[in-house]
Simulated assay, not measured.
Amino acid sequence: MKKFIGISILVLLAGFSQVNAQSTTSKVGTDVKDGAVKAGNKTAEVASKGKAAVTDQVYKDKVGPNGETIYIDKHSKYYWIDKKGHKVPIEKDKLIIKK
C-alpha cells in the first residue's frame, strides 16, 4: 500500500511539471510572435521614412500633433509616418510650429 501511495504521488508530481512546461512553451511562443510583429512594424516604419525622405520634401518649420516629421508629396499633400509604416494624411491647419 505504501508503494502504491508513493508511486501515485510521484505520478501526480510528474503530471504537474508537464503541465507547467506546456504553459511555459505556450508563453515563449507568444513572446516570440509578439517580438516578430514588433520587429516587422519597426522595419516597415524605418523603410517608409527612408523612402519618404528621399522621394518627398520634409516640412522643416512644422511638426505633427505629437512631434512627428511632416512630409509633402508631389501632389502637395501633407502626411506623417506612423509606427506601422503607414502614411497618415494631415491637413495643413492641424500642423504645429516646430520649437
Score class of each variant (00 low, 15 high):
Lys51Ala: 12
Pro89Thr: 03
Gly85Pro: 04
Val32Gly: 00
Gln18Ala: 14
Asp31Phe: 11
Ala39His: 14
Val54His: 08
Tyr79Ser: 12
Gly50His: 08
Asp61Arg: 08
Lys60Trp: 09
Lys3Gly: 04
Lys92Met: 12
Asp56Trp: 04
His75Ile: 07
Glu91Arg: 10
Ile72Thr: 00
Ser8Met: 13
Thr55Trp: 03
Ile96Pro: 05
Lys77Gly: 12
Gly6His: 03
His75Asn: 15
Ser26Tyr: 10
Tyr59Gln: 14
Phe16Glu: 03
Gln18Tyr: 07
Ile81Tyr: 11
Gly29Trp: 00
Val63Ser: 08
Gly29Val: 00
Lys33Thr: 07
Lys87Tyr: 09
Lys98His: 11
Glu45Ser: 10
Thr55Asn: 12
Lys42His: 11
Ala47Phe: 06
Ile90Thr: 06
Glu45Tyr: 08
Ile72Arg: 00
Gly50Arg: 01
Asp56Pro: 00
Lys62Thr: 06
Glu45Gln: 12
Pro65Glu: 11
Lys38Glu: 12
Ala47Glu: 04
Gln18Ser: 13
Met1Gly: 08
Leu10Thr: 02
Lys87Ala: 13
Lys83Val: 03
Lys27His: 07
Thr24Phe: 10
Lys84Ile: 02
Ala52Cys: 08
Thr25Asp: 05
Gly67Cys: 04
Glu68Trp: 06
Asp73Trp: 00
Ala36Leu: 07
Ala47Val: 13
Ile97Glu: 15
Trp80Val: 08
Lys94Met: 12
Val28Tyr: 06
Lys94Thr: 01
Ile9Trp: 02
Glu91Asn: 11
Lys92Gln: 14
Ser17Tyr: 11
Asp56Arg: 00
Lys49Gln: 15
Pro89Gln: 00
Gln18Cys: 08
Gly15His: 00
Lys98Ala: 09
Val58Ile: 15
Val88Thr: 06
Gly35Asp: 04
Thr30His: 15
Ile97Phe: 15
Gly35Ala: 13
Lys51Met: 09
Ala39Asn: 05
Lys98Arg: 15
Asp82Glu: 04
Glu91Val: 02
Met1Ile: 06
Lys60Ala: 15
Lys94Asp: 13
Asp73Glu: 05
Ile7Glu: 14
Ser8Gln: 10
Lys83Ile: 07
Glu91Pro: 02
Ala14Ser: 06
Lys60Cys: 02
Phe16Ile: 14
Lys92Gly: 05
Gly35His: 02
Lys33Pro: 02
Lys60Arg: 10
Lys74Gly: 15
Lys77Thr: 11
Tyr71Gly: 01
Ile90Gly: 05
Ile90Glu: 06
Val11Met: 14
Val37Glu: 11
Val58Lys: 11
Ala14Leu: 11
Thr55His: 01
Lys94Val: 01
Ile97Asp: 14
Asp34Leu: 08
Val58Glu: 04
Lys83Arg: 10
Leu13Lys: 00
Lys33Arg: 13
Asp73Gly: 01
Lys3Ile: 01
